[in-house]
Design a binder for these strands. Structure first.
Lengths: 167, 167
DNA sequence: AATTTTGGTCTTGTTTCGAGACCATTAATC
DNA sequence: GATTAATGGTCTCGAAACAAGACCAAAATT
């Protein structure tokens, strides 16, 4: 997890932060309410040195904060920042994909429910500006204001004249 | 990427498939319409041996298919399966998080738009059964039918008596 | 004063990665 | 029909990252 992608790409940049085996698991724990080094260690089975490294990076990247309790000695709290909390959608997306595509209906290990009603969440849906659900095949890509030369070139190549046989 | 998580957990299981630096980038390319070994190589900058490995795993895991053109020699096509296509929501979730939290408004490298109207997509939202947007703080966890002993114990520990100071 | 808890660091062997050399099959070109 | 190019790989080797556990320092508890 030290080598980084250099592409100007939202996915690549995100992977520079959590593109490894442990980081999202730590963030899952944080969403479950875990705040202490020892608890992350116990609940994820990560090894100590890696946990130190990953928490350090998460703090560097602004995903978590290390809060000291001035009066409580060697006792810290790791908490998600706003930037980290904004990953909730990503977590739910992965959770729902995994439930459906890996475990299958009836085998879900964890259920996400609305706290007040205890009813399951709706599935996330990709929607266009008017709120209609669309499939990813209906999504188009365009270079944005932050695209550099390479990114622009790559995106302009995308044509998705779908399923074209190379005949 | 050979060692795997053993927890019965949707997130951990998903990470066993794409919890590394390259796999989601390959899947991004696939969503962009890339199908050929050489094109994945060129567009991701991954090294050959790793690409071979990752594509092999993706096929094993049922995310992609390797289609042979009987008549076209050493020419194959890697295509997303239904299971792979279902990752569209995950990709959009990561894309939107990254745009907003890493690049920031006005610096997006790529814009996702609705193909027919060219208008940007809506942001994904977490909604409860009645369709109201809720925050992740309103989400509750319960052991599902597929929870094993460990998972059940872990989930029952989750209380999220939020932000409790260990005072 | 001794022990425990917390949150680490350091060391060592193993695994994975990254870069490039090399290779086999088929297709195109001369 | 022989030669060259394109495609999709495999193999090797040094570098980086990981995993497990020994060790450690400060503060809190007994």
């Amino acid at each position: 997890m030290a080598q980084k992608h250099t592409q100007t790409c939202a996915i690549a940049s995100a992977l520079n932060i959590f593109g490894d085996r442990w980081t999202l698991l730590i963030i899952r724990e944080a969403f479950y309410g875990t705040t202490r080094f020892g608890d992350f260690l116990k609940n994820t089975q990560i090894s100590k040195n890696l946990l130190t490294d990953r928490l350090g990076r998460l703090v560097e990247d602004g995903i978590m904060e290390r809060v000291e309790f001035a009066d409580r000695g060697t006792n810290f709290k790791y908490a998600l920042t706003e930037k980290g909390l904004a990953l909730d959608v990503v977590m739910v997306a992965i959770q729902q994909w995994s439930e459906k595509q890996i475990y299958g209906a009836g085998n879900e290990p964890v259920l996400l429910t609305d706290r007040s009603t205890k009813a399951p969440l709706q599935e996330l849906r990709i929607t266009n500006a008017t709120g209609d659900q669309i499939s990813f095949a209906d999504v188009d890509f365009a270079p944005g204001p932050g695209a550099d030369k390479h990114a622009r070139a790559r995106i302009n190549e995308i044509d998705r004249s779908d399923t074209e046989d190379p005949t």
